[in-house]
Design a protein around this nucleic acid. Structure first.
Length: 596
RNA sequence: GGCUCCGUAGUUCAAUGGAUAGAACGGAAGUUUCCUAAACUUUAAAUAUAGGUUCGAUUCCUAUCGGGGCUACCA
């Protein structure tokens, strides 16, 4: 990359001019701002102490040196402490000619046999997937692609939350009020059916609590003593004791939930290489806890419960096993981490989990470290922000969630309606049309979610979010479709562009050069997105690329250009842009249509 | 209360400590005998407050105000 060379030469310049050696990191190299002439800018303010000259003189010194030593540099200008470098048109043309036919442009070769393990989705079998899970799934799936593009082997894993007191709650509700209802008999998707019983439990539980408080108990006592919760606890103990009847119902109900999840995953376009179940890892966690207890790292309290003491690390004590011997969330996660490490020996274990669990992961890393697990330093929590609704936070027990399946249905209907209104579905067969509506609606949804920095909370307004104009997925898809249409027309007109050699000495117009520069930036965008674990960086880039191309396309004729060299150049830019749009969108898990 | 994250146009989002804080939607005004108008052009509009560090602060530090999250023998 030219940036590396610029940094190297700048170091040499500083060394020769001022007799001072510095490393690359201390040089500010950035893209030149749009309004200013130049391709790259070096900020010389930090070098003034070394040069002992004015910003302008320092910049001029370095600029002169670079121009003399780098044939790629055509000219430079200095504004205050900013040294703006202009590269030659030949440099950009060479880049275009070589990389536009490289299908791997911007991607890296495999760096290590040891994979990065990426956990995402992690559903709870009690609840159908909702908008929060959608953000999780899209982030996880996209990040997997981005890491692969950066040369990592990636193992996508899902950890299914299939055991625990919460699961027993829906089982209990089903035992009491289920009447042998099944997904088939009710016509409900399995995960939705389970969710119904979880809500039912909560409703009756709340009623019991209210009742007990009426009889004089405190809120806390009522929550502990309500018959429903003690019954659920009985079921948990039976389950851990492998009571056949309990396990049988558990398997039946979980199966329904999995069938439901699979449908949603397939529709969302996400997948996994390995599915872990907490029911299979919690015993390993318990063993590790017992081991820690044996070594005196953990301690047992009088009631028999087992704890990790993190007070001298500024945290509190953390329960790892209840007095009745059953395990908790943290116990399972300890077991899961160990199992995964044994399975894959990953370089890094990334957990895509919402930021409300920051404390949990902080504790998990510390406990693993206490237990002597050196891989604890490679546990990385990709903590993403909440998805908020205009009414506030989503609460599944209160029914204020946006259901994943419902949302995709609504987006589909919307895409269909708008596409038909624009008359764009007229020439399509029914199946082609359905595929297109699917592509557009999912593109809109995925892009909307992924364009926001993962770490930040985001607002989702179901009404206003369904927009296909402006900074949206369909805008980018449309740009792609128009490029494909252009290429089809080029063929139809008999223009032989596919194997044609473009003369490298064609002078570039500003709009042509700007577009080529944006394509060049694909490389650093992929790297940055990988380093920061942020699909949003790809999303912002591809929007910028599409936006810029639309301007290019609006202002300059492509097929109608009469100069054959110019025409060829513009076709090549268009084709390359289409490829990069498609590949960028692919990194976001978004498909692009050939026409729309 | 303690810990933690976040306050940027009317709204939703950008901006490795750098130049005049960018977009999109919404508002106002335009572009179609011309490669798809789901497009393009023009325009008004913002860094919560007060200090500090720095040649330079939306960015780093402190305080205040406002909002979210965590602080479970739920996961």
């Amino acid at each position: 990359m030219i940036e590396t060379k610029l940094l190297e030469q700048t170091c040499i310049a500083v060394s020769k001019l001022y007799g001072h050696d510095l490393n690359h990191n201390s040089i500010g190299l950035e893209k030149t701002k749009k309004e200013i002439t130049g391709d790259f800018t070096i900020v010389v303010f930090p070098l003034l102490k070394i040069s002992r000259k004015s910003p302008e003189a320092t910049a001029a010194d370095i600029g002169t040196f670079l121009q003399q030593n780098m044939p790629e540099i055509k000219e430079f200008n200095v504004i205050k402490g900013f040294l703006n470098l202009v590269l030659t048109d030949e440099f950009w043309m060479m880049f275009l000619v070589i990389q536009s036919v490289n299908p791997e442009f911007g991607f890296h070769k495999t760096r290590s046999e040891r994979p990065v393990l990426l956990e995402y989705s992690s559903p709870n079998t009690n609840k159908p997937l909702h908008l929060g899970h959608i953000r999780n799934n899209l982030l996880g799936f996209s990040l997997a692609g981005i890491l692969k593009a950066n040369g990592h082997k990636v193992v996508k894993v899902n950890l299914v939350n299939d055991r625990g007191i919460h699961i027993c709650k829906s089982m209990l509700a089903y035992m009491k009020w289920g009447n042998h209802e099944t997904p088939a008999s009710s016509g409900m998707k399995g995960d939705h059916l389970i969710g119904k019983y979880y809500v039912l439990f909560d409703k009756h539980y709340k009623a019991q609590i209210k009742d007990l408080i009426g009889k004089g108990l405190t809120g806390e006592e009522a929550e502990r003593q309500a018959p429903l919760i003690t019954e659920a606890q009985d079921i948990l103990r039976k389950w851990e004791a492998k009571d056949p009847e309990t396990v049988g119902l558990w398997k039946l109900m979980n199966g329904w939930a999995y069938d439901g999840f699979d449908v949603t995953y397939r529709r969302l376009g996400v997948d996994f290489d390995h599915i872990y179940y907490e029911s299979e890892t919690y015993l390993l966690g318990k063993n590790l806890v017992m081991e820690g207890l044996g070594k005196g790292i953990l301690k047992r309290k009088e009631d028999g419960s087992i704890w990790a003491d993190l007070r001298n690390e500024g945290l509190d004590e953390k329960l790892l096993q209840r007095a009745d011997g059953t395990s908790v969330y943290m116990t399972q996660d300890i077991g899961t981490a160990q199992l995964r490490y044994d399975d894959y020996h990953p370089l890094e274990m990334i957990y895509v989990v919402g930021n409300e669990q920051n404390y949990h992961f902080d504790v998990l890393k510390r406990v693993l470290s206490m237990l002597g697990k050196e891989y604890s330093t490679h546990v990385n929590h990709l903590s993403y922000g909440m998805v908020e609704l205009p009414e506030g936070k989503m609460k599944s027990r209160e029914g204020t969630v946006v259901d994943a399946d419902d949302l995709m249905d609504e987006m589909f209907i919307c895409a269909e309606q708008i596409t038909r209104e624009l008359g764009k579905a007229n020439e399509l067969s029914a199946s082609e049309a359905e595929k297109l509506f699917n592509t557009i609606s999912l593109g809109a949804l995925k892009y909307f979610i992924l364009k926001v920095d993962p770490k930040k909370n985001m607002m989702f307004d179901p009404v206003e979010s369904i927009d296909f104009n402006g900074n949206t997925g369909p805008f980018i898809q449309y740009t792609y479709a128009r490029i494909q249409s252009l290429l089809v027309k080029a063929d139809a007109a008999g223009i032989l562009w596919k194997d044609a050699k473009i003369p490298v000495h064609v002078p570039l117009l500003p709009l042509e050069k700007e577009t080529i520069k944006r394509l060049y930036q694909f490389m650093e965008t992929v790297v940055q997105a990988g380093e920061e674990h942020s699909p949003a960086i790809i999303a912002n880039y591809v929007f910028d690329l599409a936006k810029g191309f639309n301007q290019f396309y609006q202002e300059l004729p492509v097929l109608k250009e009469e100069d054959p060299s110019k025409r060829l150049l513009r076709i090549c830019i268009s084709k390359f842009t289409g490829n990069i749009i498609r590949r960028s969108m692919k990194l976001l898990g978004i498909e692009v249509p050939e026409r729309m």
